[in-house]
C-alpha cells in the first residue's frame, strides 16, 4: 500500500501551468523531500493531498483511495488521517496557542478539559513550547508560530504529515530539533510524510540520519554509513511543474544536470 500517489496530475491557474503530468509515489513510512525553486508548485502538491486544491486532470490517491472527485464532506475521513503544517503556519489568530493546538480534539468531540490540556501540553513539549500555551499567535515570533503549527498538525496521531517548509527561518538548533522530531515520527511511528523545503541542511539531515530506540526507550539518532544506506527518505526536485529528479540523496548529488547543481551549491 502506498500512502500518497499522484498519477499524471496537471494543474494550471488562469492559464499559467503549475503542474504538468506530475506523478509520484510516497510509500508508507517514507518521507519525500520535495525541493524546487519558488513558485514551482510545491505547496500546490501538498494542498492536493489534503483535497484543498483539485487537479485539472489526473488522480490523487491517499492510502489507495482516489480522492480526486470527493466532495468536501467525503474528504472529512481522509483529512482526519492527515496533519498539515502550512507554509506561513496559518494559525487561527483569534484563538490562543492552546486552542489552536486543541482545535482538532474539540472538532472530534473531545470534551474532557483535563484530557485536552494533557494532550496539548504533550505536543507543545515536542516542539519545546510548553511556556507559550497561554499566548495568542500575535504575541509569537515567526519561528514559534511555525512550531505551534507543527504541534497543531501532530494532534490526533495522523498517519500522513505534510510539512511546508517547517524549518524556514529557524535557527540551526531549533531546525535540528524539528528534524529530529520528524525523523522520530518517520522511523518510530511509521508516519508517511512530504517535507517541502529550501533548507538543504535539513534535507540532508532527514536523508542521512535515522532514529532507533535506546535501551531505556529513548530515541537516539544514528548517521547512515557505508554499510547502511537509508532508503526511507527520497528526494524529488520540481521545476516548472515537472519532475526534474527523483531518488535518494546520494544520486541527487551526482546528477549532472545544471539546474540541480546550481540549486545544491
Amino acid at each position: 500500500m502506498s500512502a500518497i500517489r499522484f498519477e499524471n496530475v496537471s494543474k494550471s491557474y488562469d492559464g499559467q501551468i503549475v503542474l504538468q503530468n506530475f506523478s509520484m509515489v510516497v510509500q508508507t513510512a517514507e518521507t519525500k523531500v520535495i525541493l524546487g525553486g519558488t513558485g514551482s508548485g510545491k505547496s500546490t502538491v501538498l494542498k492536493m493531498v489534503a483535497g484543498l486544491v483539485k487537479p485539472d486532470s489526473g488522480q490523487v490517491l491517499v492510502e489507495d483511495e482516489d480522492i480526486t472527485d470527493l466532495t468536501e464532506n467525503e474528504l472529512q475521513p481522509i483529512r482526519r488521517k492527515i496533519g498539515f503544517v502550512f507554509q506561513e503556519g496559518a494559525l487561527f489568530d483569534s484563538l490562543s496557542v492552546k486552542e489552536n493546538v486543541a482545535y482538532r480534539l474539540r472538532e472530534n468531540g473531545v470534551r474532557n478539559e483535563k484530557e485536552i490540556d494533557e494532550i496539548v501540553r504533550e505536543v507543545l513539549g515536542f516542539v519545546g513550547l510548553e511556556d507559550a500555551i497561554a499566548k495568542m499567535p500575535a504575541e509569537l515570533s515567526g519561528g514559534m508560530k511555525r512550531r505551534v503549527a507543527i504541534a497543531r498538525a501532530l494532534v490526533g496521531h495522523p498517519r500522513i504529515l505534510l510539512y511546508d517548509e517547517p524549518t524556514a527561518g529557524l535557527d540551526p538548533i531549533t531546525s535540528r530539533a524539528i528534524c529530529e522530531l520528524i525523523i522520530k515520527l518517520r522511523d518510530l511511528e511509521r508516519v508517511s510524510s512530504i517535507f517541502v523545503t529550501h533548507d538543504l541542511k535539513s534535507a540532508y539531515t532527514m536523508a542521512s540520519e535515522f532514529a532507533v530506540l535506546g535501551p531505556h526507550g529513548e530515541a537516539t539518532f544514528v548517521s547512515e554509513n557505508d554499510r547502511f544506506c537509508l532508503i526511507n527518505t527520497r528526494f524529488l526536485m520540481l521545476k516548472e511543474g515537472k519532475v526534474l529528479f527523483e531518488g535518494p540523496d546520494e544520486t541527487l548529488r551526482s546528477v549532472k544536470e545544471e539546474y540541480i547543481q546550481e540549486f545544491l551549491s
Binding site: 489534503a50 484543498l52 483529512r79 472538532e107
Partner: peptide
Amino acid sequence: VTEQISAMRALGTD
C-alpha cells in the same frame, strides 16, 4: 489570505 480557511478545512471543519 493567511490560509486559515484552508487550515480549517484541513482540520476537518466546514
